[in-house]
């Protein structure tokens, strides 16, 4: 029988693997266990953008040029986000999780993969309305420095305000969404008393490891970009970063089913992907 060429162009796959290991060795960013299909789309887009005729040519360009690599990183992360994205999740946090958090004198919340920060500001607003913001510290991290800068500014295009306000109300918002920002020209800037409770910082989920004793971790719409192996690795770290009895909130289409950490958690609201760390206390 004739040897059939393997379905995914093998040579191309090898070339991309070389690009990824080259980047990992040179810059320490490890994309080798990202979901292949969307990673490839993003890399192809960068090649177009940077006029690289091949993945090898792209690696050559990136290898000695830190600034270009910074540009490359921007393309590698999908930072699409919203205030109160998936409102029912925030409603569930408000109704089911916050009452439990209130039994602690002080809580730590981690937004892992916070993109441009809307998720953290949403949480700050929610906690403020629950009279609990003063007893909370929010850590919002990402590996995209560019979007972290935006998150730190807390300034967003005004054109989204209507959608965000609708989300806010659907999420059980108790006041006027516009009370939380000042508007000027085409922009809105969230109030400083929200930001004061948020620490924005760089953290790479693949390479930087455990992050403190959290009461709640929101890691939403980040794990879908990882393959199964990396999902398990990162989930194990998230579990280790949670206090016993702490909560984990994933994206609407992410679950713990079929993952290595399933036994460590019990579902609190499976539809909203909220879990509680329960199982064996050592992970």
């Amino acid at each position: 029988m004739m040897h059939m060429p393997s379905p995914v162009h093998e040579a191309e796959k090898m070339e991309i693997d070389r690009l990824l290991t080259g980047i990992r060795d040179r810059y320490g960013y490890d994309f080798t266990h990202y979901s292949w299909a969307s990673l490839k789309r993003r890399i192809d887009r960068v090649c177009d953008h940077m006029h690289a005729a091949s993945y090898t040519a792209l690696l050559d360009k990136l290898f000695y040029d830190d600034r270009l690599f910074d540009e490359f990183l921007k393309h590698m992360s999908i930072t699409v986000t919203e205030m109160f994205r998936d409102p029912p999740v925030y409603l569930a946090i408000r109704e089911k999780i916050v009452p439990l958090l209130k039994t602690f004198p002080f809580v730590k919340i981690w937004h892992a993969g916070c993109a441009t920060g809307e998720e953290a500001y949403s949480m700050a607003i929610l906690l403020h309305e629950e009279g609990f913001l003063g007893r909370a510290r929010l850590y919002a991290t990402d590996f995209n420095k560019h979007s972290l800068d935006k998150a730190g500014e807390g300034i967003y295009p005004a054109k989204n305000s209507e959608l965000f306000a609708a989300n806010y109300h659907a999420a059980g918002g108790k006041g006027n969404f516009s009370d939380y920002y000042s508007a000027s020209y085409e922009r809105v800037k969230f109030k400083d008393y929200l930001k004061e409770h948020i620490t924005f910082s760089y953290h790479n989920l693949v390479t930087d490891g455990v992050f403190g004793e959290m009461n709640l971790i929101c890691c939403r719409n980040v794990l879908i970009y990882f393959d199964k192996i990396l999902q398990n690795r990162v989930l194990t770290q998230l579990a280790e970063s949670l206090r016993h009895g702490g909560f984990l909130c994933l994206g609407n289409k992410e679950t713990l089913n079929f993952t290595a950490v399933k036994e460590l958690f019990e579902p609190v609201d499976p539809r909203q992907r909220i879990y509680k760390k329960s199982g064996a206390s050592h992970v």
Binding site: P7, V8, S35, A37, S38, I78, V80, I224, K253
Partner: peptide, 20 residues
Amino acid sequence: NYHLLVEPDQTFSLSVDARV
């Protein structure tokens, strides 16, 4: 609100994009 993609190992993966 999610892109649906097929991975080389014949599993699906999802990717988010702007709702607007």
